[in-house]
Amino acid sequence: MDILSILYTIIPAALIAATPLLLTALGGLFSERSGIVNIGLEGLMVMGAFGGIVGTLIFESLGFGDAAPWMGILFAIVIGAIFSLFHAVASITLKADQIVSGVALNFLAVGLSVFIVKEVFDRGQTDVVASRIPRVEIPLLSDIPVIGQLIFPRVYATTYIAFVLVAIVWYVVFKTPFGLRLRSVGEHPIAADTMGINVNRMRYIAVMLSGAFGGAGGAIFAITTAGNFAGNTIVGQGFMALAALIFGKWHPVGAMGAAIFFGFAQALSISAQQIPGLDNVPQVYMLILPYVLTILALAGFVGKAESPKALNQPYEKGSR
């Protein structure tokens, strides 16, 4: 295989693998920027995958046809936002340890979703969805000779939406009053409170946004890649998204870069056998690469990652 045809196969695969990670990482960004650690991203993706598939199946049976997967994703967004309330109530109102609450959220998501699936379908997995998200090309841009197909390949519409969302999230977090409040709550909640910002309300909104984005991420993975839902549909993508968020230094563009990089590592580990020069490298190196790089990045070899100052600290009014 020559370089170009390798790229033609790997780039779309990498972008498709990066999409759910990216969306979930953007969700985690809202939560962590407001000062709430979200180890529960994995669980939110599980609920999203569950909601996405179940929603799609329901809307298919109601005769929505090609619109069904989109309605399924919307359904998953709602499910994710509601489910994230467990984490919000525990870690904001009840001042539970945020990491422990997140771990519990992951347990609960798998238990609850598989329990419901078994009750409804009488087996460990759902039916396979019939309708899929369409693959699209960007008119004009995709038609540029040679590089057009490289930079704007035929991928699912959801992938392009995710990249548009990066710009929107960046604008919201860094250019709007809402974003300023969000960040101030995560950096110095007492000062924010003094300025009349309702700290707990901001944090609730942020955690629910992480639930909505995580739900979308899980749903898109389930609908585009898996096709159905079972207890092992989401295995570690949520933690990968968390890694992308930290690797990207809690910045939407950074998270995008990290998600694409992880997507590449994943695509490479699958297709490395066909690539000259890489076919002798054991697959295990490709598999552990994202994790090793994240650790190195955290240790400061790739530049120090600094978390929001008030991360993992419950806010108590009147405390100093």
Partner: peptide, 9 residues
Amino acid sequence: EIIIALIIF
């Protein structure tokens, strides 16, 4: 699993 998760919560 649900019971265990809720106990942790």
